[in-house]
Design a protein around this nucleic acid. Structure first.
Lengths: 197, 197
DNA sequence: TTAATATTCGAATGGTGAGTCGAAAATTAA
DNA sequence: TTAATTTTCGACTCACCATTCGAATATTAA
């Protein structure tokens, strides 16, 4: 194992390089369809080298998800900690996710779709995912209670918003990406704020 | 090849049986992860028999999508041909899809998610899919023009509604399935009809 | 009943791809 | 410079799986 800080960093960068290549391949081929040979070519290493950095194909796959969700959650924390009301916070959270997604569309498409395919138990990234969903769900509940949203069963509203947002931000059209403003406008137009009116 | 009508029908039923078994397997394992052995066991035939009815695993996979989209489209046609206004028709189309999905949740989850993974060109089922999406898009455009929807870029509204609906109907909780009424209420609450007011 | 046809399937075949090995090259430390 | 130590990778193994074979069984037709 490496010693100096630089060595550690370079090692990290090589891992990231592999992960990026792997993402490309997983995105189009899926977990089973992707081959380590392809990932090796895509990331510019020999196949055996991949195994120097990761134990298995599954580990590579999981690492992408783990990093992705962790970073996403980290970026959301300050937004959530902010002292705004539930409605505002809710919108801000979605906007922050959209911002992330805009920077790395491939990654986020993957983050939000891959889980469906996987059934492994106990994936560490699930913790972040659950935390995020839980938070959003909570914001909706609070917001409805506070009368800041239309009075809808929170469960339903959560599903609807989740889908809506996914559709908006991820079902893209590289050509016509959805701007933050679009997202904000649409949210406000669709979920009219009863207290404003 | 069979001769009598009964023979033809029985053959058809056996194919369907295989397709149903295959769906179970594909749903959890994906195209690559699924094995013909599993499909054979699941559907109650010997593996070699599968090849008597289909040429390849891909063909089985494609047949599920083809049948699914074709049937869905067939069930939508009368709704679309109906003489209601765009807004009403739009809602009816979504409700009809929801109805279908409720009857065969596994199939519809598959129909709407599998395509992402597949990149084959020229799949016949894509024709049905495109026709459906095109129609819905058209309804939204007409509806906006007629002032029956909030004035939003139709592209955006389409994405949003597509996602919302998918979230509602497919991201389920077997335990708390979303009722048609829920869907209808929600649609009406979120996309307020400006002409009603 | 017998011949033709349709259906079924277990056992081979062949290719593919995950993961390993052992040796080389590159880098760091002494 | 030399001796570790780290990194790289082509070639190999081996299990798995789609697909095919060839023979058996069942059904229909004469």
């Amino acid at each position: 194992m490496p010693v100096s800080k630089r060595q550690l960093e370079e090692r990290q960068m090589r891992q990231d390089r592999i992960l990026n290549g792997a993402l490309e391949v997983f995105k189009t081929k899926g977990l089973e369809g992707a081959t380590m040979d392809e990932i090796a070519i895509e990331s510019g290493f020999g196949k055996a080298t991949l195994y120097y950095y990761f134990h298995s194909k599954e580990e590579v796959f999981a690492a992408i998800l783990e990093n992705g969700w962790k970073d996403l959650w980290a970026s959301l924390e300050p937004v959530i900690a902010g002292e705004e009301g539930p409605r505002k916070t809710f919108v801000n959270v979605l906007l922050k996710i959209a911002e992330n997604a805009k920077n790395r569309p491939g990654l986020y498409e993957f983050l939000f779709n891959a889980p469906k395919v996987i059934t492994f138990e106990e994936q560490p990234w699930k913790r972040y995912q659950n935390r995020m969903y839980g938070t959003i769900q909570g914001l909706l509940e609070d917001g409805i209670k506070a009368g800041e949203f239309p009075n809808i069963n929170p469960q339903l509203l959560f599903k609807a918003m989740g889908g809506l947002f996914m559709g908006l931000v991820l079902m893209g059209d590289r050509k016509h990406p959805v701007s933050e403003k679009d997202v904000e406008d649409l949210l406000n137009k669709l979920i009219a704020d009863p207290t404003q009116k």
